[in-house]
Design a protein around this nucleic acid. Structure first.
Length: 876
RNA sequence: GGGAGUGUAGCUCAGCUGGUUAGAGCACUUGCCUUACAAGCAAGGGGUCACAGGUUCGAGUCCUGUUACUCCCACCA
């Protein structure tokens, strides 16, 4: 039973051992069990690329806290772990790896490339799971899923086909965001806009058949090669006469019309805009309205093509330079201004995005958005904190169609086949063998794959075997709580909600628990380019998983960003060590004795006090966790353990145990019982250390993981004892305080005389405790002391005298007494004022009024005492 | 341009539905190796809760306005 605990807690010695023990014992496994209430969480799947970062550690820790709590509360818990194939990110990594070897994607071919990708998955997938385990996550590994495994892929086809058949997926020629480096389209939300210092070139276009010019201003002069119109605002008096006329594009000499369109802002630039439908999203729209030709002047690498004439083969930036200098030579360049404007770049590789007209697949969003908004509005899905629902509405209400096709190989291939005979598109869950219209065998599958989020949108139900109505799907879905960061609400949360509603008719989860970003100690975002990222695994190796978890779970509130610093982890580590040593103290006193882990029949007031305090903490912590106030819950546990249990109850126990080492089994039982209970409360937050200590005490369960979370018990509510011990502590504190003020070192013992008021005369029973903890070597109770040359401490229920003899300074003491008198009088005044206030008396609740009345009585007696003591001292 | 958040001790942050004289960690000062823990113990200093109004018997907490910073969305040819 009593295992030897080292002086310092060494996480390394226990974490791996305990995790293996938990896993082998099957504590994390869950099966269908109708006798228990279900609690399901699906883990946001980390990308298959690279390592876990601090954001994952936070996300996983929060989930683990909730899941462990619910398991201890008796729920049938399932936490599904998994990994995301991360199409574009992974493909970029593999392509990069190949580039170093001098191989191109095309050289390898689709099949070989995919072989490589799967090898990558095998290698890195296990690596990520290992990291999740190191954090301590109690997920059910038997349920682990991958977004491209067979089941999830089946779900993806089902999703695509159903939406297509309902007319919610369409294929169309649109202008999309093209990344010239990743060579794929990306969705609007994958584009990052950043302010950029650029130039605003003013260029003259000659009006056909006249010597007049109009001037346009542009930041992208190279696109003029694709101009098919100029546009002005219909109400712009300056240019009304030009509408319908033609102008000549400089350099290339093409004749293009001047159209009118409300898109043009009269007060921006020159009021005249060049329209290049192939290379600007707004121009594309204008082009559609005015039936303008679309001239694409660039290839997929953003290099100018044969439409660009003599500029063919130049990159977009080389072409820009050349065209500007050519315009200058021609005299068509009127002036060059500086301008700040936003430039979009790829969220993966940061290349500047090139708007590009191409044929892509889209999801029609409007019909899907409605129900997705409603289920949050009516409370079926709750965001925590609530304010994030506003952000969600705002986005959903303005959502645009979702471009889902990607020109990548790593991902779910679009289940569409094109017939070379009749041109019909065949969309099918199973690989198509023939054209659905003309039955021709001459069909080819779409080369493109689907956006990663298309499969992660299905995650909460695809992991349970949907579209099959599996028993698991019926039992565990909808899930309970989704834990994720606010940065991913648009990317992912919104997509899961509308997909789930559309496919299963149910919400995917009841709660969305949103957390913020983990920033560095200076508040900067952790990023690769800054090199300020902190590796959670390194932190674990240095300080332990529990210290990391404590750091991430405490000191911040839901939805807010937090800063991560070594100092914080250090203080968390110290907390772990504090608990460890409390356990050591208890063990030390258990030596050779058979102490039961239960509350004894005969309880002292201090026992009742700590039990009552513990009982109260149980109630508060449970409530806090249920309300997702994890930081608050943990703070309360910290305070209880450190301040109340260690600093007071253990100190009380020491005195008791030292006095009668054989005869205090009851006290020892309480120590073991409180410690065990506290460990259980703390276990969801700090699983390793709590398990290690818990097992070292007599317990009925073989693991804390499957023990019962403590319940509030009204029989353990000892308010009277709390009052008594509170006063004992007050006496001790006030004596220590006075000694410190007088610079009496702790190793110098003094005499202390205490004159208790009648109703608290029973505090005499705590003589030994007070004597020891107030550094006294001579403690007497009574009311007939010779108090000459004594420092006096007054509480509402006692007068305390310390004969400090030569140490005391009369003037200093008088000054202090007068100051205290002032304070008490001021406080009394403000309290009395409240009691005289009729409105206060009629409206404030009874307990508030009673508190103040008591305060007034206490203050009045205290003031009297102070005044008489001042007189006494003055006589000296 | 639209939306959201934040502003509390030197620093990092708590403070739940308004209720005694506002808290923690770190840092700082002083004294302690006291039979778990110096990764510790005891005591202390330090805050007109961004500013101005308002509601209320009572405001860090609710309302209005101002101001500073941060983030998100949209996007300026």
């Amino acid at each position: 039973m009593s295992r030897e605990l080292g002086k310092i807690y060494e996480p390394k010695d226990v974490e791996k051992k305990l995790y293996d023990f938990w896993e082998c014992s099957g504590f994390f496994k869950s099966n269908i069990d109708d006798s228990k209430e279900v609690y399901t969480v699906v883990m946001p799947p980390p990308n298959i690329t690279g390592k876990l970062h601090m954001g994952h550690a936070l996300d996983d820790t929060l989930q683990d806290i909730l899941v462990r709590f619910k398991r201890m509360k008796g729920y049938n818990v399932l936490w599904v772990p998994g990994i995301d194939h991360a199409a574009i990110a992974t493909e970029a990594k593999i392509t990069e790896q190949m580039r170093k070897e001098g191989i191109k994607k095309e050289d390898l071919g689709r099949e070989e490339f995919l072989n490589r990708a799967w090898k990558w998955k095998e290698e890195y997938g296990g690596f990520i799971s290992e990291q999740v385990k190191k954090i301590g996550c109690c997920c059910d590994w038997a349920h682990e899923r991958f977004t491209m495994d067979e089941g999830c892929s089946k779900a993806v086809s089902e999703f695509f086909v159903r939406l297509y058949e309902k007319g919610l997926i369409y294929r169309g020629k649109r202008i999309i965001n093209w990344c010239p480096k990743c060579l794929t389209s990306i969705s609007d939300s994958e584009v990052n806009f950043e302010e950029n210092q650029g130039n605003f070139w003013h260029i003259k276009y000659q009006i056909l058949g006249s010597n007049e010019f109009v001037v346009i201003a542009t930041t992208r002069p190279e696109t003029m090669l694709g101009d098919t119109a100029l546009a002005v605002h219909p109400d712009d008096e300056r240019f009304k006469h030009l509408i319908g006329k033609k102008v000549i594009v400089p350099i290339i000499g093409r004749e293009i019309p001047i159209v009118s369109d409300e898109y043009v802002k009269m007060d921006f630039g020159t009021g005249v805009v060049k329209i290049t439908p192939a290379h600007d999203p707004n121009d594309f729209e204008v082009g559609l309205r005015h039936n303008l030709p679309v001239i694409n002047i660039m290839d997929e690498n953003a290099v100018l093509n044969d439409e660009a004439g003599k500029y063919q083969g130049l990159s977009r930036y080389e072409a820009r330079k050349k065209i500007v200098s050519d315009l200058e030579e021609l005299g068509a360049l009127l002036k060059t201004e500086d301008i700040k404007h936003n430039v979009g770049s790829c969220y993966r590789c940061s290349s500047v995005i090139e708007p590009r007209v191409s044929t892509q697949w889209f999801v029609k969003m409007k019909p899907l958005a409605g129900p997705a908004i409603d289920c949050v509005k009516n409370g079926d899905v709750k965001f925590i904190p609530e304010r994030f629902s506003k952000i969600y509405y705002h986005w959903m209400e303005n959502v645009k169609d979702w471009c889902i096709s990607r020109q990548l190989w790593w991902g779910h291939r679009i289940p569409a086949w094109y017939c070379s005979d009749c041109g019909e598109i065949t969309v099918s869950k199973e690989p198509a063998k023939e054209c659905s219209k003309c039955k021709s065998k001459n069909i080819v599958q779409d080369e493109d794959t689907l956006d990663t989020w298309f499969s992660s949108a299905l995650w909460p139900f695809s992991v349970f075997g949907w579209p099959d109505e599996t028993d698991e799907f019926k039992h565990f879905f909808p899930t309970d709580t989704l834990v994720t960061g606010y940065d991913i609400i648009f990317f992912w949360v919104s997509k899961m909600i509308f997909s789930s509603l559309e496919m299963t008719g149910k919400i995917p989860f009841k709660n969305v628990f949103i957390h913020g970003l983990v920033r560095d100690s200076q508040g900067r975002k952790m990023s690769k380019s800054l090199g300020n990222g902190v590796d959670p695994i390194e932190v674990i190796e240095k300080y332990g998983a529990d210290a990391l978890r404590f750091t991430l779970a405490t000191g911040n509130s839901p939805g807010n960003d937090m800063r991560f610093s070594d100092e914080k982890v250090l203080s968390s580590r110290n907390f772990a060590n504090k608990i460890w040593n409390a356990a050591r103290f208890i063990h030390m006193n258990l030596e050779g004795q058979d102490v039961k882990n239960e509350i004894p029949d005969d309880l002292s007031e201090t026992d009742k006090w700590i039990i009552s305090r513990f009982n109260n903490i149980v109630l508060e912590v449970t409530e806090n966790i249920e309300k997702f106030e994890l930081g608050l819950a943990l703070q309360k546990l910290y305070d209880f353990i450190w301040d109340e249990f260690c600093d007071w109850y253990i100190e009380f126990s020491k005195i008791n145990i030292l006095e009668n080492p054989k005869d205090c089994i009851g006290n020892k039982q309480v120590l073991v019982w409180i410690m065990s209970g506290t460990l259980k409360l703390l276990h969801p937050f700090m699983p390793f250390i709590t398990e290690e200590i818990w097992q070292s005490f007599p317990q009925s369960e073989k693991s804390i993981v499957i023990s019962e979370f403590p319940e509030y018990n009204k029989n353990f509510d000892f308010k009277r004892s709390e009052g008594i011990v509170k006063r004992v502590i007050e006496i001790i504190r006030s004596i220590r305080n006075r000694r410190a003020e007088m610079n009496v070192p702790q190793n110098k013992k003094t005499s202390v005389y205490i004159d208790l008021s009648e109703e608290f005369s029973n505090l005499k029973e705590y003589k030994n405790i007070i004597k020891k903890l107030s550094y006294s070597d001579n403690l007497k109770f009574g009311n007939d002391f010779n108090i000459e040359n004594c420092a006096v401490i007054l509480t509402s229920f006692a007068k305390i005298y310390i004969p400090l003899k030569e140490l005391i300074d009369k003037d200093l003491e008088l000054k202090r007494m007068n100051k205290e008198l002032e304070n008490s009088k001021r406080y009394l005044e403000s309290s009395k004022l409240k009691l005289c206030n009729e409105k206060f008396m009629s409206k404030a609740p009874e307990n508030v009024i009673n508190n103040i009345k008591n305060t007034v009585l206490e203050l009045e007696s205290k003031i009297l005492k102070i005044e008489s003591e001042i007189k006494n001292i003055e006589k000296l």
